[in-house]
Simulated scan of single mutants.
Amino acid sequence: MCHIKKGFILLLTLTFLLSAIIYFSDFSLKIAVPPRTLYTNVVNQIRSYYMVIKFPSGHDNQTIFLAPAPTPKAHQQVQQRSIQISKQTTDISVHYHVAHPSNYHFILDEPEICSQWDPFLVLMVPVAPHQVGARNAIRSTWGNESTVQGKAVMTLFLVGLTGGSDSEKAQQQLEEESRQHRDLLQSNFVDSYFNLTIKTMVIMDWLATRCPQANFSMKVDSDMYLNLENLMTLLLAPNTPRQNYITGMVMWDRPVVRNKNSKWYVSEELYPEPKYPTYLLGMGYVFSNDLPEKIVEASKEIKAFNIEDAYVGACVKHVGITPSSPPDPSQFRAYLGQYNREDFLRVITTIIGSPQQLIYIWKDVKRPTKRDQI
């Protein structure tokens, strides 16, 4: 009987030990791999309160640094830290979860230029800080036209913060360029592909606060040919609205890219709808100058995502405005293919291959012909 009791007690002890081992093993696994709901909540909290600094590598981005999302007061310190990190790489991108332009301020500015020029049309060119060649090519071609069909035209360039090991030298060069040409604006966001939405919203803010007297504005990329005669003919046409008007190459029913390997990837968290609202392709779109203030106000309500032209489309939709198709849609072209002078005489804007090509095309388009001399 005594042996039976001892055996029973031993069996209970072994059962208890085995249960304890299973329990703690299961517990440790749960800690290592949290439930999906808990994981999702944690990630969402991080995304809500932090900005993510990433170093691109091929098609993928490897997160290496988290910092508190910048407030207006703390923004300068965050940018200083971003610049320090950028010295370790030549390609840094910073994702801000609030793209409203009030989070940023101008380092280089021309706040009085519109009161001096009183422009009918303002051309705003977002460009990378190091792309001096692109800026100079524009300055010697379509950006050099200050009067078109009797209307004043003004061209300005917008850049963000420089990055890389020679950022101090690059900043000094930008400041010298600004003193020389008086056409350079710089805001304190990190200049990168992923921050194009910020860049565009800063442009809208500048137009709303520094240049409300202009009739029209155009956001036009630095790799574009622009035929200002044709653009001005469009803007001066009697049926062209002077308010709530935006036109260019219209994009309808464009699906949101969910492929994480694409540079156009947008998560469902940032934009849940499967298709974008109607928008204008970002290479060049023109709008009545009452819209910038309305777009900036709408951006307070619309969560920012990294496809800047689609984001502007979302803001325009929020305001209750539908983008207009131009009278001749073929005048806003992505590519014209092999160079033909007649094609460039007909378009308003199209993408070109290099600053040198822009200069060559411009000279050829502007050269006098026998027909012009008759």
Rank of each mutant, 00 (worst) to 15 (best):
I9Y: 05
L14K: 11
F16R: 08
I21K: 12
D26R: 12
R36V: 08
T37Q: 11
N41I: 05
V43M: 02
R47C: 01
R47E: 00
Y49F: 04
Y49N: 09
G58I: 02
D60M: 07
T63F: 00
F65R: 11
T71L: 07
A74G: 15
Q77M: 14
Q77R: 15
Q80N: 15
Q88A: 14
T89H: 08
T90Q: 14
V94P: 09
H97Q: 12
V98A: 06
D109S: 10
P119Q: 02
F120G: 03
L123Q: 13
H130N: 07
A134E: 07
G143S: 04
E145S: 10
E145Y: 08
Q149R: 13
K151L: 00
V153I: 10
Q171E: 10
Q172D: 04
R182N: 06
R182K: 13
N188H: 08
N188E: 01
F189T: 02
F189I: 06
N195V: 08
T197D: 01
A208Y: 09
F216W: 07
K219S: 07
N227Y: 05
N227P: 07
G248E: 01
V256R: 04
E269A: 00
Y279W: 05
P292E: 04
K300P: 01
K303E: 03
V319Q: 05
V319D: 05
P323W: 04
S324C: 00
F332M: 06
R341N: 06
E342A: 11
R346Q: 11
T350E: 06
I352N: 05
Q357P: 09
W362D: 04
K366A: 09
I374T: 15
